[in-house]
Amino acid sequence: MNQETVRSFSLLLSATPRGARLARRFTTEQVRAWELPLDPDRAEHIVAELAANAVTHGRVPGRDFRLTLYVIGGTLRIEVTDARGDRRTLGPQHPGPADESGRGLVIVEALS
């Protein structure tokens, strides 16, 4: 039976713009430290979108959001969990050309 190496990294960050910036920075550093055969900028961009959503839409004053990175074999899994567990994520929206927001999960889906 083939046993794959499982690695993980998880931390709580403040649900603020600073916390979102730190999530991006920690992701880039961790992907580089694990020496994964993937572009750390791509992972950073995914985390940037998810952390921005956690800070903007899932913020509860005084509560943090969690960034978790898992590697199983050569696959990276990224999770960002916000403090609003009572609200369900709508999934990717499809905004019109004139809309100024709503593309974050579409970007995540394209990069994943």
Rank of each mutant, 00 (worst) to 15 (best):
1 M>F: 09
2 N>I: 14
2 N>W: 11
3 Q>G: 12
4 E>P: 14
5 T>H: 14
7 R>K: 14
8 S>Y: 15
9 F>K: 07
9 F>I: 05
9 F>N: 04
11 L>D: 06
12 L>F: 13
12 L>M: 14
13 L>T: 01
13 L>G: 00
13 L>P: 01
16 T>M: 02
16 T>S: 05
17 P>A: 00
17 P>Y: 00
19 G>M: 07
19 G>Q: 03
20 A>Y: 07
20 A>F: 05
20 A>G: 11
21 R>M: 08
21 R>P: 08
21 R>L: 08
22 L>M: 09
23 A>L: 10
23 A>T: 06
25 R>L: 12
26 F>L: 14
26 F>I: 12
30 Q>H: 01
30 Q>C: 02
30 Q>T: 10
31 V>N: 01
31 V>D: 00
31 V>A: 00
32 R>Q: 14
34 W>G: 03
34 W>D: 04
35 E>L: 05
36 L>M: 15
36 L>G: 08
36 L>K: 07
36 L>Y: 09
37 P>M: 07
37 P>V: 10
37 P>Y: 06
37 P>S: 07
37 P>G: 07
38 L>R: 10
38 L>P: 03
41 D>N: 15
41 D>P: 11
42 R>N: 09
43 A>F: 06
43 A>L: 07
45 H>L: 15
46 I>S: 02
47 V>P: 07
48 A>W: 13
49 E>M: 05
50 L>V: 05
50 L>T: 05
51 A>S: 11
53 N>S: 05
53 N>G: 03
54 A>F: 02
55 V>N: 06
57 H>F: 11
57 H>N: 06
59 R>Q: 13
59 R>W: 09
60 V>P: 04
61 P>S: 08
62 G>H: 04
63 R>I: 02
64 D>P: 04
65 F>Q: 01
66 R>N: 05
67 L>K: 00
67 L>S: 00
68 T>H: 12
70 Y>W: 14
70 Y>V: 12
70 Y>L: 15
71 V>K: 06
71 V>H: 04
72 I>F: 12
73 G>F: 11
75 T>M: 14
75 T>Y: 14
76 L>V: 08
76 L>D: 08
77 R>P: 00
77 R>S: 11
77 R>G: 06
78 I>P: 04
78 I>W: 03
78 I>Q: 02
79 E>C: 10
80 V>N: 03
80 V>A: 02
80 V>S: 02
82 D>E: 03
83 A>Q: 00
84 R>E: 04
84 R>I: 04
85 G>P: 04
85 G>S: 09
85 G>A: 09
86 D>M: 11
86 D>N: 11
87 R>I: 14
87 R>Q: 08
88 R>A: 11
88 R>C: 09
89 T>Q: 13
90 L>Q: 13
90 L>T: 12
92 P>N: 04
92 P>T: 05
93 Q>R: 15
93 Q>T: 14
95 P>I: 00
95 P>E: 01
96 G>F: 00
97 P>D: 06
97 P>F: 11
98 A>Q: 14
99 D>W: 06
100 E>R: 15
102 G>C: 05
103 R>Q: 10
103 R>N: 09
104 G>C: 09
104 G>F: 09
106 V>C: 12
108 V>I: 01
109 E>I: 01
110 A>F: 13
111 L>P: 03
111 L>E: 02
111 L>G: 03
